[in-house]
Amino acid sequence: MRKFERTEGLVAPLDRANVDTDLIIPKQFLKSIKRTGFGVNLFDELRYLDEGQPGQDCSQRPLNPEFVLNQPRYQGASVLLARRNFGCGSSREHAPWALEDFGFRVVIAPSFADIFYNNAFKNGLLLVTLPEDVIDRLFREVEANEGYRLDVDLENQRVITPSGEILEFEVDAFRKHCLLEGLDDIGITLQDEDAIRAFEAKHRQERPWLFRDSAQA
């Protein structure tokens, strides 16, 4: 997993509550053999005017000009500002994969669905929870100011607005550590590499037949 770096990024507002994982990435794209490449189909039903199929060349598809991510002023956004209960629905890991692949590093919302919350942190995507009234204010500021950026500092657990205002947020210590160090489950297990090697050596000595190269020696 990539380390989470302090992000000073353009903010895109998605003004809609209960955005579910089907909306984030519709089911027909789950047939893919990859963990990457979901970005072009992020919010597929909102973004395009036709029905998307896997493997299609999306550059030829009619865009919905109304959709926020299609507007010129939000191109290159890396912070998504969202509403309550973001990421509800299925457990598909494809949802954070799609957000990440599109270029988002942070989603800021008043609340997130449980499974999505876990999946996001497993995939290097930082979710920042801020109070509803603060989110309301941020929506107004983003919409009023073209080129509005936020500085997201995970190390110090704060978001800094263009006017220098500091918004502090909570995050669980273990998740913060994993994100800052770029550790996924595999990375964490590999911190026990020595223990695994020692176990493996003993295991091989006690039961060599479980290892093909020594089983038929």
Binding site: P208, W209, R212, S214, A215, Q216, A217
Partner: peptide, 8 residues
Amino acid sequence: FAPRGEQW
């Protein structure tokens, strides 16, 4: 894939 000889 099964072990052989003494290993067996």
